[in-house]
Design a protein around this nucleic acid. Sequence first.
RNA 1: GGAGAGAUGGCAGAGUGGUUGAAUGCGGCGGUCUCGAAAACCGUUGUUCUACUAUCGUGGAACCGGGGGUUCGAAUCCCCCUCUCUCCGCCA
Length: 422
Amino acid sequence: MLTIPFLRDFKEEALKRLNLKNFTNHSLIDEILGLDDERRLVQKENDDTLAAMNQIAKEVGSLFKIGKAQEANVLKEKNAELKEKSRILAEKLELLKEQIQVRLVEIPNAPHLSVPAGRTAADNLIVASSGQMPQLPANALPHWDLISKYDLVDFELGNKVTGAGFPFYKGKGARLQRALINFFLDQAIAAGYQEVQPPLLVNEASAYGTGQLPDKEAQMYTVGLDNLYLIPTAEVPVTNIYRDRILQENELPVKNVAYSNCFRREAGSWGKHVRGLNRLHQFDKVEIVQIAHPDTSYEVLEEMRAHVAQLLDRLELPYRVVKLCGGDMSFASALTYDFEVYSAAQQMWLEVSSVSNFEGFQANRMKLRIKDKNGQIQQAHTLNGSALALPRIVAALLENNQTEEGINIPQVLHQYTGFEKI
RNA sequence: GGAGAGAUGGCAGAGUGGUUGAAUGCGGCGGUCUCGAAAACCGUUGUUCUACUAUCGUGGAACCGGGGGUUCGAAUCCCCCUCUCUCCGCCA
C-alpha cells in the first residue's frame, strides 16, 4: 500500500499518478490525511499521559522505599485517574488507526508516470515485437486438436478426477512440460537467480503481504479448515520470504527463482477464449522475483524484461511486449510489461508473462525495508515476472511448429525433452 | 494425536515486580597502535510512532513470540493463542 507520508508530502504527484489508474476518489485521500492528523493529536495526548504515569510510578516506588506510604497512596489515586484517561485515548487511537488502515488498503498502487493512460487492454502500448510469424497451412489445427491427435494432455481425465481446468499431461506432453520447467530454471540460475522451492499453501499474512488479500480473495482456492490459501503464483511465498525483514544494502539485489504449480479459481471466465490450455485452474509457472533498491528498481525491471525476451527468442516464438495502460494494470503494480506470444492456429496473442515493478507497495505491506550504507532505513522495491507460464507456451509451440510429419520441438529443448519431434 | 520443556536484541545467553531497551560474550561499526594487517585496548551498536528542530539532534511513547489481565509500576505474576524443542504414537 501507499504510505501516509507519500500521500501527505507528495499529494499532487500521488493524485496525478493515481489518475492514470482511473482512481479519482480524491476525497478518500483527504479523509485519510484528516484521520491521520487526528491520530497524531490523540497519540501525543496519550503519550503525554503515559509519560506522567511513568513518572508517578517511579515516585511511588521511591516513596515506599523510604517509608512514606501515605504520600505514595495519594499518588496512586492520581495514577488511577490518568490510567482511565489513557484507556479512553488508547481506544480512540486504535479506532483511528483502523479507520485509516481500512481506507488505505483501498488505494491502488500509484503507476509510474510513464504508464499510458487508458481503461482497457485496447489502450495498452506495444513497445516491442520480435520473431517470425509462422505461415501455417489452411488446415492447421489449434492446440486442443493437436493435443488429442498426439495424446499429450487429457482434459476428460482431469474432469473425472478433479474438475474442469485440471488436466492430466501424458507421455510426451508431460515430458515437454518438464523440459520447459528445467530449461526456464536453468536459464534463470545462469542469470544469477537462486532457485527456491516454495510451499504451495500460504497463510493469511502472506496473502496479504503481496496484495492478494483483501481484495482478490475470490481468485484463490482456500483451505478453510487450516485457514490457508493455495498460491495463485510463486510470487506470494517467494516474496514473503522477506516479510518483516530489514535487508542490508549489500545483500541487494535479491534474486530468486521458483518453479511452482499455480492455482486460480478464475471465477467468471468461460467461453472459447479459455479453451484448451488457454486458461486453467492449475498450471505450472517459473517465476523470477527480485528485491531491489529504489534507485535501481527500474533498471532491474528492464533486466527482467530482457531475461523473459531472451527465453522467448530461444524458443523461437514470435512475441510482442505490451506496456499496460493504467486501467489494465493490477492493483499492486506500478509498471507492468506483458509478454504475448502468437499462437498461430488460434490466430491469437496469448499472455505468457507479466513483469512488474511494485515499487514499495508490497514492501510496505510486509514491512520489508533496506538499511543503506549510512544506516538509514528506507523502502525496498519488489519486482517479479513469469519466466515463464507453461500452458500457453505449450499451446503456441504445438500450433506454430506443426507439420505434416509431426510437431517440431525447438532446438534448445532437445537436450531436455530427449526427442526432437512429437 | 499423547506427555513435558521452552520462546529475551544480528547471534549466543543472563535477568522472576521498581531508573532494564534490557547484564555478559560473539558479531558489526568507529578509533588508538601498525608501513599494512592481526592481536590488544577504548568507544559505539535495534525498530516503530511522535513533539520540537533548517540540519546534526534533543525529548516523549511503545516493543523481551502474539493477544488480553493483575498492579501505582510487568521481560518478570495470571489467562488465551501461536510456534519451537524433547519423548511416545503414526508416517513419505
